[in-house]
């Protein structure tokens, strides 16, 4: 199954949002962010390294709930003894977040869960030969905790930070952690 097909849920989600239409109380927003994802180092599985994905998100929020779709990307080039490999990572996530203490303070934790899809492509260069392989789409399950500042039409810029645990059979180990910051714009 190609990433185009797998990305379908995001478009489906956005399309349905259009049909449903934000209610007067709902906030539709876009966001940009950057995160640090912790991975084991290839040399030693006892040490970790951080890779830095960038992401774009669109979502809708109403009351204590937020639903969002994210597109995340990073690129990682390695070279050793004239073996050069470039990994390109695409990720699409659908998340629901619940903010139980929103009325008390926006800085109290907001909890989230969701599902995502990862596709990675590899370009390998050795001895003048180039090999490009498109990876299969792998599902990923996400749990998160963080905070998100209150934003509204009168205060259209918000920001947030969350820590995520991601589970996928394709990861080693199967759970990875990620800390990400975002800025959101209401439209």
């Amino acid at each position: 199954m190609s990433f185009r097909v797998q990305i379908c849920p995001l478009f489906l989600f956005l399309l349905l949002l259009l049909f449903v239409g934000p209610t007067s109380a709902a906030e539709t927003y876009l966001g940009l962010g950057i995160s640090a994802r912790l991975e084991r180092e290839t040399e030693s599985r006892d040490t970790v390294d951080a890779i830095v994905p960038y992401f774009f998100e669109a979502g809708v929020g109403e009351g204590k709930w937020r639903f969002m779709g994210e597109l995340l990307y990073y690129n990682d080039k390695t070279s050793e003894s004239f073996v050069e490999i470039e990994l390109t990572h695409y990720e699409m996530n659908l998340l629901g977040k619940y903010h139980p203490w929103r009325e008390v303070s926006s800085y109290l934790p907001i909890f989230g869960a969701g599902i995502g899809f990862i596709q990675e492509n590899v370009e390998t260069r050795i001895g003048g030969e180039v090999d490009r392989v498109e990876g299969d789409v792998e599902p990923v399950f996400i749990g998160s905790v963080g905070f998100l500042s209150t934003f509204s039409e009168s205060n259209p810029i918000g920001f947030g930070l969350d820590i995520r645990a991601l589970y996928s059979e394709s990861f080693d180990p199967e759970v990875e952690f990620d800390i990400g910051g975002r800025i959101n714009f209401i439209f």
Binding site: E39, R40, E41, T42, E43, S44, R45, D46, T47, D76, T78, S79, E80, S81, V83, E84, I85, L87, E120, N121, V122, T124, I126, V133, E134, G135, D136, E138, S170, D172
Partner: peptide, 26 residues
């Protein structure tokens, strides 16, 4: 005495493990 490595792979659509970094390939 050494740490266990953590080689990285991407699974292709044909189910082949493609090394995702230069050291993993070697």
């Amino acid at each position: 005495i050494g740490d266990r490595p953590s080689a990285k792979f991407v699974r292709s659509k044909k189910g082949v493990n493609v090394p995702a970094d230069a050291l993993s390939h070697q």
